[in-house]
Nucleic acid binder design. Structure first.
Lengths: 230, 230
DNA sequence: GGTCTGGATATTGGATCCAATCCTCTGCTA
DNA sequence: TAGCAGAGGATTGGATCCAATATCCAGACC
């Protein structure tokens, strides 16, 4: 299972560092340090960073390098608004197309989220949670929509573990997932969209708190738009 | 106005080649050739290509290199559906926030589209057309939404010039733009959304035809898997 | 005392070189 | 003749080296 190129290995490792928070928002990424840590030269590191820049995980400043992106509360609000629009579309399209196998797979993913939760495995929870939701989104058969949604999910991944950490939230997740599965079994798109929305709304509150608690007083610093600097 | 780094210069040039169709969909991108043409080494070329890969303009196959992405009709339909959802949101948010200066700038852009059209300058038309629309989208103050929309527009840029080439379409564009400006002046978001939608719908037809006319008979083929046939 | 200038150092950007992989074409074999 | 194996060339992937730029700090000047 090893990647065919070093850039992909570097990319995978950098993603892991970002999700676990070992590379915290706002810190600069030293190419030499990353390269040495992974036992490669700086070239594949640079290419991996270009990918992450495109995904908005790091911001690039010419001749100054890459910095781990920070998510402002405004940014977060925007991400969730876009998710609302796009996930609703995905669910509306996906539900009528669902076959029983897919529903079963979704249900299995839900059980794995619960199992991971019971043994306190946060990484496992986020991974299976993502699987749970994207099995549904992907069922819409709209690859570009899936890809855009993945970008939006990625953007807040750093903070997602915080949500799962709260035991109250864990119960809530379990409950919401069960509701969603029931709606899918009934092929009830409208209800699925509604469940999905309330599920999302409950997490935005928790993640907002996480950001406000973590971000340094100085930094409302931008993750979003601009490539151009001057 | 020269870029601070070679990668950005390469990126700009590659974008130009993609938009003008000099790099046609389906053709492989030879790093060495690009590098030589621009008088740089392959390193900045590779980094620029990684950016374009992230934007979906080229697809990357490990150890085989980059190929200019082809857009299937299904892809196109999806792009326009996503644009419908997201542009409606952008317009709804932007219109109440518009100030007179922005409206004036939008109107100016519209006039520049017309002017470019009259002198048969296709590149100028697409550039100013983009400016026209994104002045409005950006006015929503939602950077991530703008960015996502830019990605969607980029995906079909290759085919956009075809639309402007038709003289009938040019009149249509002129008319639609005028309608939109009127709606913006009146700060009528609902009407702006409607104009925008019908404007978009008329272009999807033309671009679909352009794709069907251009893509090789064999291929509905997509960006992903195409193997060489000969 | 504060601000500006100049140089030392760290870091990134790019070029060149070598290695690994893939593609093609030739020649052999059944 | 069709199919396969292997050699050779083409192309990409990665490492190393050098150049360009930014940052930081000391010292001069107002």
């Amino acid at each position: 299972m090893r990647p065919p190129t070093a850039q992909e290995a570097v990319l995978a490792e950098l993603r892991r560092l970002l999700v676990t928070g070992e590379l915290a928002p706002g810190t600069p990424v030293r190419q030499e340090a990353v390269a040495e840590r992974l036992g490669v030269s700086r070239v594949p590191v640079r290419e991996a960073l270009k990918v992450l820049e495109g995904e908005g995980h790091v911001v690039y400043l010419p001749h100054r390098g890459y910095v781990v992106a920070e998510l402002s509360v405004a940014d977060l609000t925007e991400v969730y608004r876009l998710r609302e629009l796009l996930e609703a579309e995905a669910v509306r399209v996906a539900v009528p197309r669902l076959d029983d196998d897919t529903v079963a797979a979704i249900e299995l993913a839900a059980r794995e989220v619960d199992a991971a939760g019971r043994r306190g495995d946060l990484a496992g929870m986020t991974a299976h949670n993502r699987e749970f939701h994207f099995l549904l989104f992907d069922a819409a058969g709209l690859p570009r929509l899936s890809r855009t949604l993945r970008q939006l999910w990625d953007a807040t991944d750093v903070y997602r573990a915080v949500y799962f950490a709260g035991p109250g939230n864990r119960a809530r997740v379990e409950h919401d997932h069960a509701d969603l599965v029931a709606a899918l079994r009934a092929r009830d798109a409208r209800r699925a969209v509604a469940v999905q929305k309330s599920h999302r709304d409950s997490s935005v509150v928790a993640v907002t708190r996480a950001i406000e608690g973590r971000v340094s007083p100085a930094g409302s610093a931008a993750a979003g738009g601009g490539r151009r600097a001057r």
